[in-house]
Simulated assay, not measured.
Amino acid sequence: MGIANKSKPINAASIKRNFVLNLLNTVTALLFPLITFPYASRILFAEGIGRVQFFLSIIDYITLCTALGIPLYAVREIARVRDDTVLRSKTTTEILLLHALLTLAGYGVVLLLAFTIAKIEVDVPLFLLLSATLFFNAIGVAWFYQAIEDFKYITIRTLIVRVVSLVALFVFVKNRNDLFYYAAILVIANVGSNVFNFFRLRKYILFIPWKELNLWKHLKPALRIFILNLMISIYVNLDSIMLGFLKDEQAVGFYTAATRVTKAVIGIVSSLGMVLLPRFSNMISNRQ
């Protein structure tokens, strides 16, 4: 693929349609754990669910740090230049490579925790399996498809992966010894579809020579967003981590069940914001 000197605008769907599609995606994301949780908790008990949730809460913090505010920052930046093929390709490649480098550093932290923290050492394979979330988030470029407002693709591929994951849960998770299968299905349901995102990216971007890239210019603005995301994450995830260290996995399991529904409303409210951000960013860049 060579670099073209022409723009290739991306036609975005209406905001109403995007909102409905994103809302559908959000609702299915909320329904999946509500459907699977009663079955999984009956098979794996509070201790098994609690162990997975405890490890996931730690992985979520590492994911947050390696992402460094990139998902939200990238939506804004790609939306601004999405009508210019070269700028779109250059910005996407820079952000993708920056995220990949940060993810490598994140895996260093994963290995350090896996072999130094007693509560993690009891089940290192499970912790490492859940850390696959880092990899899938790095290659997933979900922010790109949000920026170009391709919510139809996002919704369809996510629905397919979640349905397959739901079937896999009932097929493979049969007793307490299947905790590893449960964790793998959970990872696939949440971020497994990101593999398709990565390969489909070739449809939208061109090859940009390394010498023309400037990864580090995105670091400072993304860091500002990261600080805001960190404050939100402390409210959302720190409770499970603290409970896991202060008590045990069983307590985390019971707590997860109690908070599952209350956190559902947040996703519904925020779904409109994810639809408006790319559209407004693009309009501002076009002086509209």
Rank of each mutant, 00 (worst) to 15 (best):
V75Q: 08
V20K: 09
I43G: 03
T26I: 03
S14Q: 04
V20F: 14
L34Q: 05
I139A: 07
A74L: 10
R82L: 02
S41Q: 15
E121R: 15
N18V: 09
C65K: 00
V122T: 15
L30Q: 13
G106R: 04
I35W: 08
A132H: 06
L102N: 15
K119Q: 14
T28Y: 11
S7H: 09
V75D: 01
R76L: 02
N137K: 04
V81C: 11
T133N: 15
D84Q: 12
F115M: 08
A118C: 00
T66N: 06
L21M: 13
V109Y: 03
G108Q: 08
L113M: 14
T116N: 14
S57C: 04
L102G: 12
T91E: 03
F45Y: 12
L98M: 15
V81G: 07
I117P: 03
A118I: 08
F37D: 01
F54D: 06
R76P: 05
L126A: 10
A79P: 08
N25Q: 13
D123A: 13
N137P: 04
V52Q: 12
T133K: 10
T66G: 05
F135Y: 06
V52I: 15
D60K: 11
P125Q: 03
N11V: 13
A132Y: 10
I70R: 09
D84N: 15
I43R: 02
E47F: 05
L130A: 02
F19T: 15
L134I: 11
I62S: 01
T36Q: 00
G48I: 01
F115P: 09
R88V: 00
I78V: 15
F37H: 08
N11R: 13
I10K: 10
K90T: 12
L111G: 15
G108V: 07
Q53D: 14
L34G: 01
F136I: 08
A118V: 12
I59G: 02
T92D: 07
P125F: 02
G48C: 01
S131R: 03
E47D: 14
G50N: 10
L31T: 06
T26Q: 14
L98P: 08
V27Y: 00
T103P: 05
A4F: 09
P9M: 02
A74S: 14
G106F: 02
N5Q: 11
R82S: 14
V86R: 14
T91Q: 04
A100T: 13
F136N: 07
A46Y: 13
I58D: 01
N137V: 01
V122F: 04
K16H: 08
T36D: 01
I58Q: 03
I120W: 04
G108S: 06
K6I: 13
K8H: 11
I70T: 13
E77V: 04
F127T: 02
I43F: 02
E121N: 12
